[in-house]
Each structure stands twice: as C-alpha cells, then as structure tokens.
Write a protein that binds this DNA or RNA. Structure first.
Lengths: 243, 243
DNA sequence: CGTAAAGCTTGATTTAAATCAACAAATAAA
DNA sequence: TTTATTTGTTGATTTAAATCAAGCTTTACG
C-alpha cells in the first residue's frame, strides 16, 4: 500500500494513506492509470502548504478538492470590516473544499496552520474517471455524506450552548473525537492554534477563554500548558458540554 | 414534466418537482423504469407526514433519504436529561437524512411541523441504478456537495455571533434566503414554528427572543404578528448580522 | 544575549442575557 | 361562549461575559 510521506515534526499530526478520507477516491483514481503515470500523477497531487499560506481563497474558481495529510488548516471568512472570522478547522484525513463541487468556486479561505501537506484531487480528472468507474462515484458519495455528518456534528456541538463553558467543553470534545486516530494518547490534545483563534471561532473573548481554562483546571477537568492539553475528567467535560 | 402534488394550504410552503433538490436524482431514477412502473414507483415515493410525527428517528437504520416537497421539518436531538434540542430546520426542496448514506443510520430526529409531504428515495434502489447511470451518481455528488455548502452556511450564520441580536438577524437572513423561492414576497417570512422552538434552536430564552423582536420592530427593521414577519430594512438587518 | 513584541492570564467594572415573575393574547377544550 | 391552557410580552433582579486595564510569559529578533 502506497503511503503518503510522513511529515515528522513535533506536534504535527499526520495520516498515512491507509487512514485518509480521500483513500476511497484516491486509489481507484490511481488504478485507472498506467504504472508510470501513477507515480507521476500521484506525487503531483501532493503539496506542501507553508504556515499562514492559503490553500485557496474565497470566491476563487474551484478546480480541485483536497484532503489534509499533515498539519491543520483553519477555514476563514473575511467580514465587510475586514475582520477574519474563523469558521472551522480541518485536520489530517479530512476534506477541504468539497462543497465547491457544487458551487464551482470556493466558499471560504483555507489557511495552513504551520507546515502542512495536502493531497489534491483534480475535479476534471475525477469527473472523467468517474464516468468509467461507478465504484469511484459511490465512494465519493459516501465520503460527501460522511463530511456532511461531520459538519452537522460540529454544528450541533457549538450551536445553542447557553454558556461559554459548555461551548468550550463541546469544542474540546469535538477536537478529541476528530483527533483521536493520530493522538499519541486518548487524553492528550494539542491545540493547533492560539487562544485568540479559538476564541474567535467560538465567538467569545480571549479573556473569557482564558478564565474558563483556568476554571476547568481548578475543577480538575484538565491541565493545559501553552497549547498542550491533558484531559483528566472526560465525564466531567461531557456533563458540562451536554448541560 | 411531472409535477409533485401541490399542497395548497395557508402558510404551507411547497416546491414542485422543477424546483426540487432531488430532481437531478429523481428524474434519471424514474427514466430507468417502464412507463407503468414510473408512476407506481413515483407515487409510492411520495408520503404525507402529519404534524409532530417523526419522519425518522435518531439511530434508526437508514434505508432512504428524503426531499421535502411541502411544509417544514425540525431536526432534533434528545439530551440525556430528555430535553429536546432543535438542531435545524428543513424546507421544501431541501434534503433530509443524506448524511445517513455514510453512517447507515439516521443521526437525528426529523419531525414534521404541520402537515408535510416528502419524496422518498430508496438507498438500495439508488445504489443499483447508480451502477448503470453514471450521470445519476454525478448528480447525487453535486447534490451532496450543495447540501454541504448549505450546512456550512447555516453553521457560519449562527456560530460565533457575540450577541443574541446578531444571531437572530443572521437566522432571519438564513430563513429568507432558503425560503426565497416559494415566498409570495421577498420581504415576507412565515415562521414555521413558535418562539420557544426558535429560541431553543438559537440557544437563548423565549423572553430574550421576544425582547429582540420588539427591539427590531422599534428600530423599524421589521414587523411581526404571531408567526408572520415582514422585513422593512434588509440592509439594517445585515448590518446587525455581520456586525 | 537582552530587548521588543506578541500571546496569555487575572482583576475591576460595565453591559447583555438569564432568571424570576406577572400578565396579556391566542388556542384549545368544555 | 366561557374557561382552561398554551404561547408570547414586558418588567425587576441576578448572573455571565464583554470591556478596560495591568502584569506576566513566551517567542521573535537585532
């Protein structure tokens, strides 16, 4: 089984091809090519995106969808007053830009957080191969459905939480779940971004976030040093999240 | 062009097949059948769901996806304390349950608000026909991508709004956009549900919702009588939403 | 290395929303 | 129709988060 190059850096998460969401598309796509061109097209599909660099920008015409191989991305929108609004994160194994299949253009900015690596699937190529390989289509359908369910879960986890505490608890649980497969430990979580970015995403202030982290530590729910978190009481967090 | 039966009731919204999201799937699926069986399978696909009745329930095994033809649905989850949490709404022309293609079971409850009508697409049938009709698959892919982008928009419109005012304004704009095609007027909006359900969905109290509606009326942004809203100042609402 | 800049935490005060409470309006039931 | 019940509005008080402000820590840089 072909494996994506593993980016071995401290706190850079990665997935190999076996654990990548894109695999059910990637493999039949490659199988439809000759030995030589496989490697060619396969390798050309892999890209490094440097810290703070956009993979694509809002409104850009969309010619490809991406799967994250290593590192994290933040998805942002820029408001009319030029404020950046963080609408989500994407981690290794997850798709980015899949909603552009329909809209033909990207609907948000996808910005690398740290050094990242992505697999690129050309939409034109996908479309052509799809006509010959019904299984490829089925896999893509399943993948989109999965992404859908991921989005809905994310939505549910943050919407209609009355308190900042339950919102943060739900956010942590969502991160834990999505990062489970490539965390060293089930209880450890490395935050890909700083307090400001998380606070922005969750819709409250850096100060509030800081206070809640302190409170959670006092309660013995977790410990946090800089961006490294350790969950001490998962049930306690769940109780707060699903108040 | 075949047309879904129009449910003509006051304040019941509907789409005919021409404007239905499901059409790109529905039509090729029907085209793969004989004349006689077309009507048969077509009609059998349409179902009426009565007020407060679940179309499906969380965790049920999923054998079909649905498109709303007429009326509205609320999507809910039941918390451990047996509280109903409204995680979203679905209106005519929109899909329900599409995320179950991947999970094989439904991930939330879909409950009819008033008398509703849905088109049912059997997943097994879809799967079989799909192997013969690549175009069907492509259409489904596009549809799922569209639903994805709808979910993301909904997410963005409600997440990380610091004030209840901007959250409600964003919610109204989201409703307006999604209901645009079958509203008599661009400025009129009929709320499918009561204050409690909207407040539940947005994560604040009935009283707060009521106060904000009053404030919006005082500001001359809109008028509201029971569930009938008229937008007077769209730009004003946008300013509040995208603070 | 020391200094600057950025990021994080904690405290005091203000502001927005929850809560408690009363009442009005609309709907359903008798 | 009258009465009961649900649903919606408004007011007074309490509570949670924003804001303003200061100090601390870490990282970046000359």
């Amino acid at each position: 089984m072909t494996t994506c190059i593993k980016v071995k850096q401290p706190n850079i998460k990665y997935v190999d091809c076996d654990n990548c969401s894109m695999q059910p598309i990637c493999v039949p796509l490659r199988a439809g090519k000759t030995e030589v061109s496989i490697m060619d097209s396969y390798l050309s599909r892999r890209n490094t995106v440097n810290n703070s660099t956009p993979l694509f920008r809002e409104k850009e015409s969309a010619d490809a969808i991406y799967a994250v191989c290593a590192g994290s991305f933040k998805l942002t929108e820029i408001s009319s007053e030029n404020n950046e609004k963080v609408i989500g994160f994407r981690f290794p194994g997850e798709l980015i830009g899949e909603d552009a299949i329909h809209t033909q253009h990207y609907n948000y900015n996808a910005v690398a957080v740290g050094t990242t690596s992505v697999c690129k699937i050309d939409l034109k190529e996908l479309n052509e191969c799809g006509k010959l390989l019904p299984e490829l289509q089925l896999n893509l359908i399943s993948l989109l459905s999965k992404q859908n369910s991921m989005l809905r879960e994310e939505f549910t986890s943050v919407v209609a939480k009355h308190t900042a505490e339950s919102l943060l608890a739900a956010f942590i649980l969502n991160m834990l779940k999505r990062n489970a497969q490539y965390q060293e430990s089930e209880t450890k979580l490395h935050l890909p971004v700083g307090r400001d970015v998380i606070a922005n995403h969750l819709g409250f202030r850096r100060e509030t976030l800081s206070r809640i982290f302190s409170k959670f530590q006092q309660k013995g729910l977790l410990t946090i040093h800089a961006k490294d978190m350790e969950i001490l009481d998962l049930e306690g967090l769940k109780n707060i999240a699903y108040d």
